[in-house]
Design a protein around this nucleic acid. Structure first.
Lengths: 177, 177
DNA sequence: TTCTAATCAGCAGTAAACAC
DNA sequence: GTGTTTACTGCTGATTAGAA
């Protein structure tokens, strides 16, 4: 008997509601992953590579074993799911919660998984772009959805003092001179 | 067949749930709220993604009425709690989960609340700095804890030009003690 | 009104499972 | 073995809404 999530501590959680998912009913099998997660963890690996003496970034992690291992294996997207996701991505790489919700319902994935998929997809595209640049390749060799997203990103970061408030010349005396 | 877990939701971000430690000395003043929240985000449309273009801004969120309203009112930090938080912040504005945990236990707040407090505190300081800059004020008019934090930020993002502001030795309380 | 507790969504970084 | 996907963590910035 699985007794799915018996109480446990409930764990709050924010991202996705999850619980009352109306549709998505496989009906049988599928051991529902218990939402119980304790992740109290916190620290991450250090960063700030330079500088022998950095202020205090994060000490190494505690256990770094996520609940995945404790609960179950990863689920990979099927061809159908992937097709839909990629189609939607080409239409809009950053869909709203609303749209993501609809997609999730369509392909029977959790909203959370859909959200993560889009995030990872964006990251992947960025990484690809970086590689392309480093290889000195033509931009033409970059897929169009990629170009679109990157262009969008560039546009956004360039507006106002949004991104680099502290780095702007003239604002801080120690800035770029 | 997709057959993936339905509810699951895996949640996560909540980070630390309502403190599974039952023996957290029940303070008379503060009732530690068990942060069990089931954020149900909404759906509602309102957006029109314009297909890839116009990244301008996100559509207004639906109602974003979260558990707060459903469960209970906001809890504000007491003077004692605030005193501790601010002291710790002056020592280190970005404490590790460990430290946060200790603080939370000390002042009888949830770890999540402590984390949020630090986040908001940093945001506040940044905002203040921005205002100061826009007003063209001197940096000297900025409180020191603020300068410290901002300098730290600048160092990290700029990684090369960081030196000037805190070039003077021993400005950082963090990490050194 | 301002201040602040709390949420949401995105990102970088990372880890582990999976594919090659 | 490396490389790719799924997933999670903490953080930021923006935003919402409750208290003062």
């Amino acid at each position: 008997m699985v007794t799915q999530l018996e109480a446990s501590s409930l764990s709050a959680m924010a991202g996705t509601p999850g619980a009352p998912t109306p549709s998505a009913s496989p009906g049988s099998s599928v051991t529902p992953v218990k939402t119980e997660q304790l992740t109290d963890d916190g620290s991450m690996t250090s960063l700030t590579p330079t500088n022998g003496q950095t202020p205090s970034r994060r000490p190494p992690r505690k256990s770094t074993l996520t609940q995945q291992q404790k609960n179950q294996k990863r689920q990979r997207a099927t061809q159908d799911q992937l097709a839909t996701l990629e189609l939607e991505f080409s239409k809009n790489p950053t869909p709203t919660a609303d749209v993501r919700d609809r997609i999730a319902d369509e392909i029977n994935m959790t909203q959370r998984s859909v959200q993560i998929w889009f995030q990872n997809r964006r990251a992947k595209i960025k990484l690809m772009a970086k590689k392309h640049l480093e290889n000195g390749e033509d931009l033409d060799s970059i897929p169009e959805s990629m170009r679109q997203y990157l262009a969008m990103q560039a546009m956004e970061s360039g507006k106002g003092l949004g991104g680099s408030l502290l780095g702007r010349a003239g604002l801080f005396p120690y800035g770029g001179g």
